[in-house]
Structure formats: C-alpha cells, structure tokens
Design a protein around this nucleic acid. Structure first.
Lengths: 246, 246
DNA sequence: CAGTGGTCTAGACCACTCT
DNA sequence: GAGTGGTCTAGACCACTGA
C-alpha cells in the first residue's frame, strides 16, 4: 500500500507550502500558543535549512490566513482569533445620547441532551449523540437583544457542565480557552429571517410571530474540526450588517 | 507652498508601494483595460528600473486587491470585477427538482429626478441634484424576487436615459462598461430588515407590511468615486446569507 | 520552442522596538 | 546597541502555456 503523502514532506509541493504546514502544525499542537512569539525568521530559516526569503514567504502566508501576526521590530506572534462579537457585528448599537453601551450576558439554562438534527449535522455527530446545551441571553443596556442556543460536543466540553454559572459572564471563546485549552480559529455564520416562536419571543420580550433574525454559527479549531454550533435569535428591526465586496 | 507628495513619487514610501500606485493608475486611466494582459514582469521591472522581485511584490499586492489576475504561463491580466449577483448572494436559490434557475430582469421605470437624502449622501451629491432613477424587477422562474431602485449621478450616466429598454435585460455593470466605459470596482452592501410598503409589496406580489430585507448598495470605481447607489427589497423568508469569519 | 509566471537563493541595508 | 521584521537586489532554475 502506498503511503499517503504528508503535507509536510510531499516533495511535489513548493518548499514554502511545506513550511507553512510545518509551522501551522506547531500552532495546532500547542507547541506555540496564542500570544506567544515564534522564533526569529532567521532562526527558523536556519532550522529548516532554507533561505530567509522562502521562510518569509511561508510566514507571510500564515499571516494572511490569520494564524500569525507580525509586529515590526518585536517579532512574529501566534494570533489570538478575534471573532468579534455577534452583538456588535450584526445589530445596531443604539448608543443613545453617546452613553457607553453596557452589554451583559446571562446563562439561562445548561443541560446535557441529544444534539438533534441541525447541531449534529454541523458538528459531525449523530442526532442522538449527547451534547452540552447552553442557553444564553445577551442584553444591551438591560434590554434583551439576542438569545443563543449553543451546542458543545461531549466529552470534550464536559468540564463546562460544572463550571460555576457566574463564569459565563465573560465571552465564551476565551472561556473555552481558559477552562479547556480549546482554541476557536474560524467560524461560519448563516443569516436568515423567521417568525419568533414562543420559546424565542419570551426571553426577548417580543410577541410570538414577530420577525426575528436567525444566525446559525459553526465554529472550528485550527485543525478544521467543528467545535461549537449555535443558533442565535434577535429582533429583526434591530438587525443591520455591512458587507464589503471585492 | 509645499507641493503635495504624489503617491508615485513620495520617497518615504517603499518602492513596491509606488509601483503599485503607478500600475493602478494605468488601469484607472484605461491605458490597460479589463481583460488586457499587462507587459511581462521582467519587462515592467526593466521599464521601472527595479529588481524583478520588487516588481513581483507590487503586482502581488494588486492581485490581492483584486485589480490584477495572474495566469501561470500566460501572463498577468487586468481583472474584470465580478461583484456577483445580488440574487444569488443573498437569496435562496430554490432549484426545485434540480431544474436550472431562470433568472430574468425587467426595467419597470426610468426617470430623471432629485437624488433625495439617502442616494445623495452615498453619491456625494446634494439631495436636489438630479439623478437617473431606474426601477428594476428581478425574477427567478418567473417569480418576482427582488425589486431595485437605482440612482445614477447625472451627467455621467446621461446616455443610459436613451438606451433602449431591452438592453436592460443584461446585468447592469457590464452595461455601464459597454455603454459608458464606466467600470465598477468595489461595492458596499448594508443589509437590514423592514416591513413592505405598498410600492414594494405590489411588484413583489406580497402583502403590505410583510417582512422584507432591504439591501442598500453603494458601488465605487477604481478611483474610489461613488458611481451608483441602489436600494433592493426582497421577501425576508427567501433571504439567506453566509459569512465566513477570519 | 520561446515566453510567461512560480519558486528559491544569498546576500545587503533599513526601520522599528526594547533595554 | 542588539535583535527583530521590512525592503531590495541580482541572479538561477522550474512549470506551464501557446504557436
């Protein structure tokens, strides 16, 4: 049987490609952690036995991919993915009278249960596989704006089932990293509109049947593995999103 | 009085930056037109008196910006911006039974009138400045899906006022290029939600007050000048949009 | 086959950051 | 001042395309 060519050693690939894969692997493996500085370009070039320019091209590629971040005169660092905040990405920030916004969040429910069809498809599980379900309400200036249902594959996220509810005050992705060492690198959102069900309308303090935005997100790790699925609902009138094309 | 440093000659900028600006200018000026091949990298390097690698870096930048397109072994070409199709970018393509979709479009109205507040702000005009207004209905499988109101600054788009209505069968950006030599390079969309007014509901064959998506687009030329503003409405239930983050 | 972009090298000097 | 990334050069060879 023919051995499958490894991305790092497949000689048909350009050197800089193989370097990219080798460096990316160090990040995935956690040898280099988010926030860390990686060795100097010249050191890396020497270590891999390539010209400086070739190593630069490899690093440049990872910078474009958002894995690394260069800081002139200081070094090259493993980037901490900033996937923004659904609240501010997708909703109008009605900063009335220039007052600073006060976004807060509250864990409404936490339970273990079957993934169901949508979450299972996104996470690569069977619908009956158990996941940790979180329900979270996000408010701005004490006004409910978004309700999230979040599915996290078990056993990987088991520890989150016992973390004190108060810890869910913070953003979730940093929490995953702190508690579980799980890093979210990338996510896909799908935006659509629907009518509010009773379960969604109540926490949002709107009427059943009112128009809502539905944002379904799948979040992935550096290795491309799906780690989290969530479905968020918010009042449609508050929704606003900007897209830049080309 | 100090002369303002030209992007192409400001010596504080890296050479490759100045090269980028010089090449971009040739595209803006129409010296190199969309679809054209530009001279070989080696020729350009010689012409500008720089090393090949430096010219490559400049070209690479324009490729990333979407101005140029490389084709291995053939040459480097001026890219024809493909701003996609609002229909397929933002709405579910319900290809029932695998039948190919039949998207069509119809010019519903064409008139000259004041820009009004929204269009004027986007186009950098005064609200009372005259623009050419187009109203266009877009259908898929003979079912109305999107109604567009399009504002085009006037004197520049004057010729479009007399072009036969049948020509509006095609996509607008290629039409602008063919009839006026105007190239759209970039656009910004803002997506929001509203209730259908009577004017919007009638052509879409929905009820007044039904939920609709509103997509406001400003389109720009290579020089960053706003060239077109449009507001599109479509039924909210048919809307679907995917966003990839980082 | 000639001409194009794609990869790679080995060196030089500059600009920035920190101590 | 030492160490980092940023720019630039001048050359070599490879891989692909089209006539």
């Amino acid at each position: 049987m023919q051995s499958v060519p490894d991305a790092r050693t497949d000689e048909r690939l350009p050197i800089y490609q193989r370097l990219k894969d080798a460096l990316a692997e160090r990040i995935q493996d956690g040898a280099w952690k988010p926030g860390d500085a990686i060795p100097a370009e010249s050191d890396l070039a020497a270590e891999f036995g390539v010209a400086l320019g070739t190593m630069r091209k490899a690093i440049e590629g990872l910078v474009v991919q958002g894995l690394l971040e260069r800081r002139q005169g200081r070094g090259t660092f493993v980037r901490r993915a900033d996937l923004g905040n659904t609240l501010f990405r997708f909703f109008r920030h009605t900063g009335k009278g220039g007052r600073p916004l006060a976004p807060t969040q509250r864990l409404v429910a936490r339970r273990t249960g079957p993934a169901g069809r949508a979450a299972a498809a996104a996470l690569g599980l069977a619908p009956e596989d158990p996941v940790l379900w979180l329900k979270r309400l996000r408010l701005v200036d004490d006004e409910p704006l978004v309700i999230d249902e979040i599915a996290l594959p078990l056993p990987r996220f088991e520890k989150l089932a016992t973390v004190p509810a108060a810890d869910f005050d913070e953003l979730l992705y940093p929490l995953y990293e702190r508690v579980l060492g799980v890093t979210i690198a990338r996510a896909t959102d799908r935006i659509a509109f629907a009518r509010a069900t009773a379960a969604v309308a109540r926490p949002l303090a709107i009427a059943t049947g009112d128009p809502v935005v539905v944002i379904e997100r799948t979040a992935f790790g550096h290795d491309g593995e799906p780690l989290e699925w969530r479905r968020s609902h918010g009042p449609a009138e508050r929704f606003s999103y900007d897209v830049e094309i080309r």
